[in-house]
Design a protein around this nucleic acid. Structure first.
Length: 268
DNA sequence: TCTAACCTGATC
DNA sequence: GATCAGGTTAGA
């Protein structure tokens, strides 16, 4: 479900309600979600939440001792004061009596505790590349320079850029007028500049709009996003291109459903 | 580099 | 009943 803008929406919404609170009790209903450590429920009880961070699509909950790394994958949610249902796999009770729950219909998400910041960073560094909103153009160009193959595949590669998924890859490529199956090694300097600008504008506009709610994304307080109203290609296969009016095409690129305009987006 | 697997629910 | 879904990963 969530890509960078949605994950950012979750941490921003939870920051004011979680920061400074101590966890009084933890209940793990579905151990397969958690990278298991026998005494995790006990260990997390009594910890104080110092803050929330994001790296790519990962959420990091920082305590006064250690951190919890959370990946929502497709249908994971962190909800403050959410209703406990059969998909609520982890319940955190806070000192205020409020509840934070991890809910995940498909159970793809993962939660892991790290005691040492250095070990956490090592884990993340192996999986997550540049932050799309923090990278310089030089860093971006350098990261793509060593790659070859479909442009969309590279955008989806978390080790290259952290946080872009299927929605935003398609929207970014429409924005800069490049076909998803164009080859990254064929991009001109101007293409790279346009791609870099499109990444930053799509991602930051999506964050401002609270992310995209296609079916079930909600932020930490249960609020929907609005960016889906501004999608120009994702979910619009066989509809008309907003720019030229021609029919948008759908195919499979990098194993994912991909929608684009074969007229407005140039092949490379 | 591609596919299957991990899961459940919604929709065709 | 089959197909599809905001993701990642292991194994062919």
């Amino acid at each position: 479900m969530p890509e960078l803008p949605e994950v950012e929406g979750v941490i921003r919404s939870l920051r004011p309600v979680l920061t400074g609170q101590t966890i009084t009790q933890v209940q793990i209903n579905t151990p397969s979600i958690v990278y298991l450590r026998e005494d995790l429920e006990l260990l997390l009880s009594g910890l104080k939440i110092l803050g929330l961070r994001r790296r790519g699509k990962y959420i990091i909950l920082d305590f006064d001792h250690g951190s919890l790394l959370i990946h929502l994958r497709m249908t994971g949610k962190l909800l403050h004061q959410g209703e406990v249902d059969k998909h609520s796999h982890i319940l955190f009770t806070l000192e205020s009596g409020e509840i934070l729950l991890y809910r995940d219909v498909r159970k793809f998400g993962r939660v892991q505790y790290f005691e040492e910041e250095g070990v956490l960073q090592e884990y993340l560094n192996r999986r997550v590349g540049l932050e799309p909103l923090e990278m310089t153009f030089t860093e971006f160009k350098l990261a793509l320079g060593r790659k070859k193959g479909d442009i969309k595949r590279i955008l989806l590669d978390q080790k290259v850029l952290g946080g872009i998924g299927n929605i935003y890859a398609d929207e970014i490529l429409f924005e800069c007028g490049l076909q998803p199956q164009g080859k990254v090694e064929n991009l001109t300097q101007k293409d790279l500049e346009n791609l870099y600008v499109a990444i930053q504008s799509i991602i930051s506009n999506a964050i401002q709009a609270g992310g995209s709610t296609i079916r079930d994304y909600r932020d930490g307080l249960g609020k929907e996003g609005n960016f889906q109203q501004r999608h120009k290609v994702y979910g619009r296969a066989h509809l008309n291109c907003v720019q030229c009016g021609r029919t948008l095409v759908k195919n499979q690129t990098a194993g994912r459903t991909t929608v684009y305009c074969s007229y407005c987006q140039k092949m490379r």
